[in-house]
Amino acid sequence: MDVIGQGVKEGILLILSLDPELIQVTLLSLQVSLTALVAAGLLGIPAGTFLALKNFTGRKLILNIIYTLMGLPPVLAGLIVFLVLSNRGPLGEWQLLFTPSAMIIAQVLLGFPLVAGLSARAVMSQRQEVYDTAVMLGATRTQAVLSIIRESRMGIIAALTTAMGRLIAEVGAVMMVGGNIQGKTRVLTTSIVLETRMGHDSRALGIGIILLILAFMIMLLILKLEKRSFKDDSTIQIV
């Protein structure tokens, strides 16, 4: 019990102390996860839309694979990227292992199926009438598809939010391909693991609090973007 109270206290003290090492760790966490999120979004939203709208053989199979990969264990993603980037692996000569780039690659691998799968769901939930209305108003096919994406943006934002939550909190992949090197690849989650292993429970909890605050601020930001794109915020009212 005491550990928790002390952890909260230590967390606040840690934030107030503006410890340069902790700031660097926090910024790296943000940099890695946000970059991975943007990349996963840029790849996943078009891929999800394509899978939702285009009929071709193997589409169902690919969708099912993507749905399965939505639950890809971070450690497994880390292992795959590790094996590929290892000196013995096919891309060993790139010398990316134990760098932030490797961590971003692993996180994109984790984030992409989530964004693609959930975007596909969101787009598939749109009805035929969206497309019909658009083309009957003279939209080209591309314009009509963009309109469908626009109508699905609530679901797509949910996809990005979910992915962000997963990436910022994930430890298995960044530990494996980043290596948790102090000052180079150490992020908040791997710091928590390390502090816990060293028996510094309250410091670990303190860093956990910073992580939560960070996640909360990112969610606020995403929600703000969401609000801006919905002038009428359409919530179901339950009376």
Partner: peptide, 19 residues
């Protein structure tokens, strides 16, 4: 000087990768 904060087997693997 790389402080990796991991167990012995993991550190060994990393050292091998980083030569």
């Amino acid at each position: 000087y790389n402080s990796v904060g991991q167990g012995m087997a993991d550190t060994y693997r990393m050292a091998d990768e980083m030569q």
